[in-house]
Write a protein that binds this DNA or RNA. Structure first.
Length: 499
RNA sequence: UCCGGCGUAGCGCAGUGGUAGCGCAGGUGACUGUUAAUCACUUGGUCGUAGGUUCGAAUCCUACCGCCGGAGCCA
């Protein structure tokens, strides 16, 4: 018999005596009553300890926050309890705990929280994100497993660069120099020629010195690769894949998404068909007068919003100044802080916008789509958009040029809505040996380390392709997070590799 | 690498040249239904570091360090 109950299952045990194991995450006292909040990973339960059980009362009164505890008692439905059910405690035992738990219920700064990431993970918000991440990872694997894909693990130590060499982490490997993987793709192509439909799912590393809310130096990518697949097949697969991820999150993690304040209606709109445009169409859209007009109007509207917010801030500050009651001052301080934060963001955004608008209007065919262009594009649609056929000079050597227009390659990017940017990048691969060699020569690449890769075009080459989806950007989008650092348990960012 | 912002108690912040402050957390006490409980009292400071200006610097200047955001680059 298992004598312990999980908080999630308490309603089924109402009226019975059960034992809970968990951590004390909050406490309110009221004379001869203690309300202890206990979490166990499945939920949070309010536990009531009364003075008429003096032993339990004495322990509950002194137990430091975040002590590990074992409680025996009777769960009872009670509408006064958060969650509708509470434990009436008979025994309260502390396994271990001490004073000084660093994270309080009030807000903390980013740096402090990042330094305490190992403890920050315990918070309701972080556990909600971790569960969504888990659901997306599981759904991604299920998606490919159900479609006959075989999981093939690709190496982390790799001899050379698949893409830009400036972004690799070098590692000393018994006197040789190797690099941490930034994609498993080349190896996956080899596996696709063996198994037909394959995917890999692992960490990837980029040494770019990007210090933004969208970048990690270590992130997880799921990459399918399919023999005999051509660009339209890849678009269909990517569309179905993204839809299944969103559906899984909505079905299995609705509560967590709500706790995170996610606008669920925006996610419900994610359904096929996704708009599909070519790079050339995207470039025309960016340069068009209509787009320019719209952006200018939006900018003016947001400027008005800024002035408005500044007026409101001044008003609040004046009220704060003349306010005499401490608790009202406190309330006003909170409002002022929130407004200041909002203003700071809006100001940065507005400061960048004229440059964005200008760069959109002056966008030249052949330029790569940067973050700003992506944002402007995705604002025109209410669901992810698929952009295909980029100029070949923007893209990697292994992408296959379009037979009907050799200036462009048969690639696809999927851009998430609401400003979250690229979540999928992929392409049909060059399957012709001579064309591939010519392209590598053009790029000034040494073919020697790639001989094994070229073998794939020598012995039974077929049209094939695949794509990669960045898990963290997907988690950020689906959870509606401002910053990618919360999407992974222990983020690795430029300038931070601890804890 | 460049641009901007920030650095004041354990945490979050106010303080624009004249005695170092507020809230939370911690401590003591009151309270039998709290929801970030409330109330009273209370502990806690090398104002990032170094130099400079000044009768006097948290406040002004210079350099450096750290953090945040953005650009470039990228998923």
């Amino acid at each position: 018999m298992n004598p312990y109950a999980h908080i999630r299952d308490l309603p089924a045990h109402a009226g019975e005596t059960v034992e809970l194991r968990g951590w004390l995450c909050g406490r309110r006292t009221s004379g001869k009553l203690i309300f202890a909040l206990v979490r166990d990973g499945t939920g949070v339960c309010q536990c009531v300890v009364e003075a008429k059980t003096p032993d339990a009362f004495a322990v509950a009164e002194r137990a430091p926050l975040e002590s590990s505890v074992i409680l025996r008692g009777v769960p009872r439905a009670d509408e006064r309890a958060p969650g509708g059910i509470e434990m009436h405690v008979a025994d309260f035992t502390v396994i271990q705990g001490r004073e000084g738990y660093p994270i309080a219920r009030k807000e903390h700064g980013v740096d402090f929280l990042m330094n305490h990431r190992h403890l920050w993970l315990r918070s309701l918000r972080q556990t909600a994100i971790l569960r969504v991440r888990h659901t997306l990872v599981a759904a991604a694997r299920r998606f490919f497993d159900e479609r006959g894909f075989t999981l093939v693990d690709t190496p982390i130590f790799q001899p050379g660069a698949a893409e830009g060499a400036g972004s690799l982490f070098p590692v000393e490997y018994f006197g040789e120099r190797v690099y941490l993987a930034q994609t498993g793709q080349l190896y996956l192509e080899a596996a696709a020629m063996a198994l037909g439909r394959v995917y890999c799912f692992g960490p990837t590393f980029r040494a770019e010195k990007s210090k933004t809310r969208r970048h990690l130096t270590e992130f997880w990518m799921v990459e399918p690769e399919i023999a005999f697949a051509e660009l339209p097949d890849l678009m269909d697969l990517a569309e179905a894949f993204v839809c299944q991820l969103v559906e899984a999150a909505l079905r299995e993690r609705r509560d967590d998404l709500q706790r995170l304040g996610r606008d669920l209606a925006a996610l419900e709109r994610v359904a096929p068909p996704f708009p599909r445009i070519t790079y050339t169409e995207a470039a025309e859209l960016l340069r068009s007068d209509a787009t320019h007009q719209r952006l200018v109007v939006e900018l003016e509207a947001d400027r008005a919003r800024l002035t408005d917010s500044m007026r409101r801030l001044a008003e609040l500050e004046a009220r704060r100044h003349s306010e005499t009651k401490a608790w009202r001052q406190d309330k006003l301080d909170d409002e002022i802080a929130a407004l200041r934060e909002e203003l700071r963001e809006l100001e940065t955004d507005l400061a960048n916008r004229p440059a964005h608008i200008e760069s959109a209007r002056r966008f030249q065919w052949g330029d790569d789509l940067g973050g700003d262009e992506e944002t402007i594009l995705t604002r025109q649609f209410d669901r992810p958009v698929i952009v295909t056929r980029y100029p070949r000079q923007c893209k990697a050597f292994y992408m296959k040029p379009a037979p009907d227009d050799p200036r462009v390659v048969l690639n696809l990017d999927v851009l998430a809505p609401e400003g979250y940017g690229e979540i999928i990048g992929g392409s049909q691969r060059e399957d012709d040996l001579d064309a591939l060699c010519a392209r590598m020569k053009e790029e000034g690449m040494d073919p020697e380390p790639y001989e094994w890769y070229l073998d794939l075009r020598r012995y039974g080459s077929v049209p094939h392709g695949g794509f990669g989806l960045g898990i963290e950007r997907t988690v950020a989008w689906i959870c509606g997070l401002r910053h990618i650092r919360e999407t992974i348990p222990f983020p690795r960012l430029i300038g931070r590799a601890t804890p």
